[in-house]
Structure formats: C-alpha cells, structure tokens
C-alpha cells in the first residue's frame, strides 16, 4: 500500500503543479506587476521643487497631508508615451469630476516637462520635479505612469500601474477616490 501511494505521488505532484501553472495563465495576472508596499502606509516623506519655468507650485509630503480631502498623485514624464494617452483622461477627471490632481515629474528635464505641459495643458494643482528619480524610489514606483490615491489623512489607499485609459481603470480610480472620501 505504502508503495502504491509512493508510486502515485509523481502524478499527484504533477496535477498540483499543473493547477498552479493554470492559475498562472489567468489573463488578468500580469507576471511583471509588482504590488505596492506603500498601500495603507502614510505618504512617504519628500519635498520636491516645482518644475522650472512653470507657475505650478512644487509638491511635498506636508502639502499632501494638509489638503484634507482625497487626492490623486500621478507620476509622469514627458518622455513617457503612455503618459500622453492618459493625460486627456486625467484632465477630464479634474475638470468634470472635480478630482484634485498632484503630479510628480519623474526623471525628466524641466524644459521638456514645461513644453509638454504647454502643449497638452496642465491639469495638475502641484507638480514636484523629481529629476533624479529619488522620490520615485520613495514611492516605490517601477515605471511611469503610476497613479496613487491618497486619502484625507495622507494615507496611500490605492495604486494604479500604467496609463489610466480604459473605462475599467477609471472606474477603479473613481471607486478608490470614493472609498477614500467615505473613510475620512
């Protein structure tokens, strides 16, 4: 009997392994995605100057904490093509839904960023210029664009990786904002 169980083990192990692999093929799973260690943590400490030659003020942790209502923090760069794609969506969120949007301009030349904002419009209330990318590390970003939802108490409640373009992505952002507003 023992022997039979022993001989059946390989097949059983293979089935279990197959189960995991099948799970891994789930199309909603992105093998490259990295979960954020920041969610449910307070906004990391940082202070960023404004992007040179723009009128928009810079961004800091203190500023984020003192707003008192949920905000979006969007990490973008002028060299990032998908950022252009989501820019219109962000603008619309600001104009129509009254979302408060903060920006972190990541590893960008200030002049390029200023041109970019000039060309596409500037929906951001504040923009911090993270030209060396250090604050990006503080936020644990793995690429641009990334968008965070911060609640009224300055706690990061949600993170979205990649451009917010699809209706589903927008719904997720809206839901996260609503949840953040409800909590405070």
């Amino acid at each position: 009997m023992m022997k039979k169980i022993l001989l059946a083990m390989p097949a059983l192990v293979a089935v279990v392994l197959g189960g995991f692999l099948f799970w891994g093929l789930n199309p909603d799973r992105d093998p490259n995605a990295i979960p954020s260690a920041l969610v449910s943590e307070p906004v990391p400490d940082f202070e960023l100057p404004p992007v040179e030659s723009t009128q928009t003020p810079g961004l800091s942790a203190a500023a984020l904490r003192s707003i008192g209502e949920p905000v979006l923090v969007n990490v973008f760069a002028s060299w990032c093509v998908p950022c252009r794609a989501e820019h219109a969506v962000l603008t619309r969120l600001v104009e129509q839904d009254g979302v408060r949007l903060m920006g972190i301009n990541y590893m960008d030349k200030p002049a390029d960023a200023a041109n970019w904002l000039e060309e596409l419009g500037n929906p951001y209330e504040r923009i911090g210029s993270d030209s060396e990318g250090r604050v990006g590390i503080e936020w644990g970003i793995s690429g641009v664009p990334e968008t965070f939802v911060i609640d009224a108490n300055g706690i990061v409640v949600y993170r979205y990786v990649g451009p917010i373009v699809t209706p589903e992505a927008q719904d997720e952002i809206r839901a996260a904002l609503a949840a953040a507003g409800g909590q405070s």
Binding site: A88, V89, T91, R92, I164, V165, T166, P167, Q170
Partner: peptide
C-alpha cells in the same frame, strides 16, 4: 474619438 480618449466611450 476625443470622447473615447477622455474615457467616456
């Protein structure tokens, strides 16, 4: 197309 891009399909 603009509306679609703005996220209101």
């Amino acid at each position: 197309r603009i509306l679609e891009q703005d996220g209101v399909p």
